[in-house]
């Protein structure tokens, strides 16, 4: 089966500005860039959820922003069906957003404080569909009902809603146009414990009902385990491991994945924990990295780790970028 979304060699480099950059330009030195995303490839199939997992600064949100063309990538390709997202002009990008939508992390900041919830859900319908005003209104109420916001809540302003209700409004807005693909950028991390599980179940129910695909961006591994069928782990701008969710959780192979799993607090006081830890802090994404990017922190590192380390298939559907595996 061909993938709905095929990302190949995606790169997003941000040039450094300021006096330092100017000076090095005058000295004729090569331009300094932040390599936020540095050659990332993955597929998302029809109807599946791929989780993009990693810590702050690993580039996972940048990948999302490239997919929606909120950023213009420095290189690589992103094929969505038979459309090449990277090459679309501004008008075609607008058109694309009927099919690719996004739910942002901060449920409050991503709602317009001056619009009623129902009007906000109507906006994408106005932009992307031919529906008349009455039909739009009806569709907005329908989708709000679907996420659990009844008619009385639909006519409220964002400040009159709780955090969980706001995130539902965001989800309703994202799915209003029946998109085929939704990018979820940490949709549950701002939610309280009891609301988190409800949001997870809602997202899963919506996906099943409408056959959407999700790219789920998160550092909350417990949530990932419930929502995703496959996982891609990012570290410092590259993917270090991909595989089926249950396999990665059962046996993480890449040392970074292993350390990430070992760090998750387990809600069981008697749980036996993997004591695998990395030393030091995440290095700067400005430096040009050759070889494995983790080698400075990895307890398993050997001299060979200075050699380039591409993702390679170690089992069907399982890829790891590590010389030691």
């Amino acid at each position: 089966m061909t993938a709905l979304l095929q990302v190949r060699d995606l790169r997003m480099h941000f040039p450094l500005g300021g006096i330092g950059a100017l000076l090095s330009q005058l000295r004729g030195e090569p331009e300094r860039v932040v390599r936020a995303v540095d050659s990332v490839s993955f597929d998302v199939r029809q109807g599946e959820t791929l989780a993009l997992v990693g810590e702050s600064g690993c580039g996972k949100s940048t990948v999302a922003r490239c997919l929606l063309r909120l950023l213009n990538p420095s290189g690589g390709s992103m094929r969505f069906g038979d459309i090449e997202i990277a090459k679309l002009d501004a008008k075609a990008v607008q058109h694309l957003r009927r099919d690719i939508q996004m739910v942002f992390q901060d449920p409050t900041a991503s709602l317009n404080p001056r619009l009623r919830v129902s009007s906000m859900v109507e906006e994408p319908l106005m932009l992307h569909t031919d529906l008349g005003p009455a039909e739009r209104k009806q569709r907005a109420l329908e989708v709000l009902e679907e996420v659990g916001l009844g008619a009385d809540l639909a006519e409220r302003y964002p400040h009159e809603l709780s955090g969980g209700q706001r995130q539902r409004a965001n989800i309703a807005r994202a799915v209003a146009t029946n998109p085929r693909f939704v990018v979820l950028d940490e949709p549950t991390s701002a939610l309280d414990v009891s609301l988190r599980s409800r949001a997870i179940l809602l997202l899963e129910a919506l996906r099943e009902k409408h056959g959407m695909s999700y790219l789920f961006i998160s550092h909350d591994l417990a949530t990932v385990k419930y929502l995703a069928s496959r996982v891609a782990v990012m570290y410092l701008g590259v993917i270090v491991e991909t595989g089926a969710t249950h396999e990665i959780f059962a046996k993480p192979l890449h040392p970074y994945t292993r350390a990430l799993m070992a760090a998750v607090p387990v809600p069981d006081p008697d749980a036996k924990r993997d004591s695998f830890v990395l030393s030091g802090e995440i290095p700067s994404p400005i430096e040009r990295h050759t070889g494995c990017r983790l080698r400075g922190r990895c307890p398993l590192a050997k001299p060979i780790c200075a050699e380039p380390v591409p993702l390679r298939e170690v089992a069907p559907g399982r890829q790891v970028a590590c010389h030691m595996i």
């Binding site: 988190r196 417990a222 419930y226 809600p267």
Partner: peptide, 9 residues
């Protein structure tokens, strides 16, 4: 509360 949390373990 204990039953409402997603579990990694």
């Amino acid at each position: 509360l204990v039953g409402s949390i997603p579990r990694v373990d």
